[in-house]
Design a protein around this nucleic acid. Structure first.
Length: 414
RNA sequence: GUGGGCGUAGCUCAGCUGGUAGAGCUCCGGGUUGUGGUCCCGGCGGUCGCGGGUUCGAAUCCCGUCGCUCACCCCA
């Protein structure tokens, strides 16, 4: 590796072979989401920092330590987007989309930036495909979103998927529950493991995941958020589950499921894959965020959505790189460059995949290259005629310059 | 931010009891060949991550540093 310039930590070049795999993810997402009425939205790569401090939550890890923020030179703080939901909601408000028939269904396929230590499946610049639907609190919207994500992951071949599902209620209910849980943990802190004890205030819900047996015993008796939700939230959640049941999407209720962003309300869900490393097995996740639009200065507007990591989808899928499409025609020459040049252009104009010798190879080298590319036909051009070889048939014949394209097309259609 | 592993040609690596760098693959050329695929020959390509130390001499030992990677935290 040369000691000079390399891609910054946590970023990666996507070379053609990988790009082909990503293209498949993008095409599948696009077909699936557009068929469900989602329209593509692209927002700027950076936003006013406030979009995230207000939208995502000032006390979240993302805002506290993972944002790439910079001064724009005029005293304003801008931030490379670390996630997609807040910017989409900002755009929704800015363009008065609440006047549009609800729900407004949007999807995006963009890169995001977080200043974390990279590891398998986690990068500083990463791509997410996401869907957001604004203006409706119908549980069918939640269910449809979950089904869409499930279909996307399944179609792309993500293996060993698990759907975890829960409901968080309103922010007020959640915050009340959180206080209750903290009190409970404090009261039993002598039986908790050190790591759990250390993060009682920071992230009490993580206590449910602890491996330590003593902690586990404490947590079995701990209050559960689902038991604290008001009736209308429980009914909403029940309806989401009914729809998922009828759609045949398997899930597991996980009362300890919390998303790392403040804006979630009611339904939250997460797809994990056993294919991924333990620490970051989440392939896609999302939920409802009924207060977010208002938080960003818009009218009270319910909403729900999800995002899935493109790199993680690929890691979770037994993705095999497909070879690039083979040329129909490879134009070789031994000095008749203008004739060869024009033949390649004519062939492309006629709709053929055609490549031309561009590296000054010997004639033998050109044949080797045509072999490597797996070109169906090789045309050896000289000033008078063209020798056209059909590699699949092993035959060749001499034709006039002007007849090559027609001959190739005719053979391909046969 | 914390901890482990690793850093020799474009790629995969050997060289690890110190003596100024090798192989395979790839790529290019030549020969053979049905103007290609096999086989043979040759060639291009390396500040041994970087800096310092020990030594007559270090890719090889010691220290530092940077980078990559995996994990923790947390997340897509």
């Amino acid at each position: 590796m040369s000691p000079g310039l390399t891609a910054p930590r946590g970023t990666a070049d996507v070379l053609p072979e990988q790009a082909a795999i990503r293209l498949r993810v993008e095409q599948t997402a696009r077909e699936l989401l557009e068929a469900a009425g989602y329209g593509r939205i692209e927002t700027p790569a950076f936003e006013a920092t406030e979009v995230f401090t207000r939208g995502v939550g000032a006390a979240t890890d993302i805002v506290e330590k993972e944002m790439y923020s910079f001064d724009d030179g005029g005293g304003r703080s801008l931030t490379l987007r670390p996630e997609g939901t807040a910017p989409v909601c900002r755009a929704y408000v800015e363009h008065g989309m609440h006047k549009l028939p609800a729900p407004v269904k949007l999807y995006y396929l963009e890169s995001f930036f977080r200043a974390e230590r990279p590891q398998a499946g986690r990068y500083r610049q990463f791509w997410q495909v996401g869907a957001e639907a604004l203006g409706s609190e119908d549980p069918a919207l939640d269910a449809e979103l979950i089904v869409l994500l499930h279909q996307l992951l399944t179609r792309l071949g993500a293996s060993d998927l698990h759907l975890r599902l829960s409901s968080l209620g309103t922010p007020a209910a959640r915050s009340e529950y959180r206080d209750e849980l903290i009190d409970y943990l404090r009261a039993n802190s002598d039986r908790l493991s050190e790591t759990v004890r250390d993060r009682i205030e920071r992230n009490p819900l993580r206590a449910f995941d602890a491996d330590d047996p003593s902690t586990g015993a404490v947590m079995e008796q701990a209050p559960r958020l689902l038991d604290r939700l008001p009736a209308n939230d429980l009914e909403h959640f029940a309806e989401v589950r009914r729809l998922l049941d009828s759609a045949g999407v398997a899930y597991e209720i996980d009362t300890t499921l919390v998303r790392g962003l403040d804006y979630y309300t009611r339904t939250v869900f997460e797809f994990t894959s056993d294919e991924l490393a333990a620490g970051q097995s989440t392939v896609g996740a999302g939920g409802r965020y009924d207060g977010l639009v208002e938080l960003l200065g818009g009218p009270p507007t319910p909403g729900a959505g999800w995002a899935a990591g493109v790199e993680r989808i690929i890691l979770a899928s037994p993705a095999e790189a497909e070879p690039p499409p083979a040329p129909d025609l490879y134009v070789a020459h031994d000095g008749s460059r203008p004739a060869a040049f024009n033949l390649a252009l004519d062939a492309r104009a006629a709709g053929l995949r055609a490549q031309l010798e561009l590296a000054g190879r010997s004639l033998k080298g050109q044949f080797k290259h045509a072999e490597r590319l797996n070109a169906r036909f090789v045309a050896v051009v000289d000033d008078e005629t063209v020798t056209l070889r059909d590699r699949s048939a092993g035959s060749e014949r001499v034709v006039a310059h002007g007849d090559v394209v027609a001959a190739v097309k005719q053979a391909l259609e046969a």
